[in-house]
């Protein structure tokens, strides 16, 4: 029987740069709905791991697999949504940026129009659909990136420091939209240094944390448990400063 949902899985993922292991034998599986946090110090390998999972770079060894319902060979890539700290903003209108994504996925024009209207309304950019996307503020550009990902109806959403350079109102709006989507069953991997943000996600119930240190990934913990009883001494050290 076919599996119920798409599974994004990495097994034994390794990535080396100048003979240094950036990602070191990482096993990770993102299948459950809800938000999973990925935390760790700068240089721990979080962005590299996300890039591997999103298929932006190929691992030196190990495999990345996308399996599950509705996933045909080679079509899995587009079902992974990725929001980065610096979004890719094309030299087009806000609408054109969204349209490009859906066109690439082969979505029909009428469906595209409806999905884009809904997506832009969700991120509160519907009034700016015809504006040049490069004229948007950083927060608006990140919201546009979120709309681009959501209208593509991803099976998994990866967010790499997606709100780290944004002001509190923009951060709050993006957090809310992502949390709402996660609550409907969309698996989200949220990379952040912002522990307060992680706690907020934990406060909504469920969720787990992957802690990464020097390229290695610790087994996941519940968000609450991660803050009260971190599993490794590196995680304890990472959290210690925030508690001062």
């Amino acid at each position: 029987m076919a599996e119920a949902r798409l599974i994004l899985e990495g097994r034994g993922l390794c990535l080396h740069r100048q003979s240094r292991a950036i990602v070191d034998r990482v096993d990770i599986r993102i299948d459950a709905g809800g938000i999973s946090g990925l935390v760790g110090a700068n240089g721990a390998g979080k962005t590299s791991l996300v890039s591997l999972l999103a298929g932006l770079i190929a691992p030196d060894s190990g495999v990345r697999r996308i399996t599950g319902a509705g996933c045909v060979e080679g079509a899995g890539e587009a079902r992974i949504g990725l929001m980065m700290q610096k979004p890719v903003i094309m030299r087009r209108s806000v609408y054109g940026n969204c349209d490009y994504v859906l066109k690439a996925l082969g979505v029909e024009k009428a469906v595209r129009r409806a999905r884009i209207a809904d997506g832009l309304a969700l991120v509160r950019l519907d009034q700016r659909a015809r504006d040049d996307a490069r004229l948007l503020s950083a927060g608006e550009q990140q919201r546009l990136a979120l709309a681009q990902m959501l209208i593509a109806e991803p099976a998994v959403l990866l967010c790499d420091e997606a709100t780290s350079s944004l002001d509190p109102p923009s951060r709050r709006l993006i957090e809310k939209i992502v949390a709402d989507k996660a609550a409907t069953g969309l698996p989200v991997l949220w990379v952040t240094h912002n522990l307060a943000q992680l706690k907020r996600f934990g406060g909504r119930g469920g969720g787990r944390v992957f802690f990464m240190h020097q390229g290695r990934l610790a087994p996941p913990q519940d968000i609450e448990a991660f803050f009260t009883a971190p599993a490794s001494k590196e995680a304890r050290a990472f959290l210690a400063y925030e508690r001062i």
Binding site: L82, V88, M90
Partner: peptide, 10 residues
């Protein structure tokens, strides 16, 4: 600038 989007969308 566009490469991440190109790769993501194949």
């Amino acid at each position: 600038d566009y490469t991440p989007l190109f790769r993501m969308l194949g």
